[in-house]
């Protein structure tokens, strides 16, 4: 049964580069997600089976309303499945309590949002340091790690700049530094280049490639942009809540 499912997923994915064949970072089995509009159920995801190997860089495409972001949210532990099982980094997310899920997100997942979502009252370095407030690290160690993450994204010299003093591309790079500062097992990116011009988008995609290639980060990216999707090693398509 499992073998046939894997074959089916493999066929639904278009391999654009060298796909990674390792232990699964993400394992979804029969995942459905139902929202309610009033009393009317709305099935957004329907029986999703998905394996994302550790160290892969996968893109998820599909028309608006196809359930891409919902799927990403479930994998990232931002939302819960209506039925089925979701295992990410060897943790069964369906069995975790709210606080355990929060801890899971803090330790295992790095988030990159379309709108960057930096806190305007914090400098670039402080924004990157934000997830480390949940650790027991000393203030000096937090600062050191934040600067290291900013160096990785090439913005160490802008560490004391506020978001309003940065360009959109730079803001997104700070958001990427924030996503990696905790050394997460998986990075989820929801339209990371959606608000950027082509040049800045290319820079961000290069950075994601670097994180995948040099730092072995598993990356799952939702995108509408075919150029961005080209950079992933695996491309998956979703339509009407079903992987095709």
């Amino acid at each position: 049964m499992e073998t046939s499912t894997e074959k089916s997923e493999q066929s639904s994915a278009q391999n654009k580069g060298k796909a990674v064949d390792g232990p699964a970072m993400v394992e979804l089995r029969g995942v459905t997600k139902v929202f309610y509009r009033g009393k009317e159920p709305l099935r957004v995801l329907d029986g999703i089976n998905l394996d994302v190997p550790e160290g892969s860089f996968e893109a998820l495409m599909g028309p608006s309303g196809s359930g891409k972001s919902t799927l990403l949210n479930l994998i990232a532990g931002l939302d819960r499945v209506s039925s089925g099982t979701a295992r990410v980094a060897k943790r069964d997310l369906t069995s975790l309590s709210d606080s355990e899920l929060a801890k899971f997100r803090a330790q295992t997942v790095g988030f990159i949002f379309q709108a960057y979502n930096l806190m305007p009252v914090l400098t670039a370095r402080e924004n990157v340091e934000l997830p480390l407030l949940l650790t027991n690290l000393s203030s000096a160690e937090r600062k050191k790690r934040a600067l290291t993450a900013l160096r990785v994204v090439g913005l160490e010299d802008r560490n004391d700049h506020y978001p309003r003093q940065l360009s959109g591309g730079q803001e997104q790079r700070v958001a990427i530094a924030r996503a990696i500062v905790n050394d997460p097992a998986i990075i989820v990116a929801d339209e990371p280049t959606g608000d950027l011009d082509r040049k800045s988008a290319d820079d961000i995609l290069l950075l994601l490639e670097k994180l995948n290639r040099d730092f072995k980060k598993t990356i799952l990216m939702v995108t509408h942009d075919p150029v961005a999707a080209e950079r992933a090693t695996v491309l998956r398509k979703l339509d009407k809540g079903v992987l095709i």
């Binding site: 709210d98 899971f104 330790q107 979502n117 806190m119 934000l130 997830p131 949940l134 924030r178």
Partner: peptide, 9 residues
């Protein structure tokens, strides 16, 4: 965003 980063309610 804070909740997504792991901050609690």
């Amino acid at each position: 965003v804070l909740r997504a980063l792991g901050f609690s309610p």
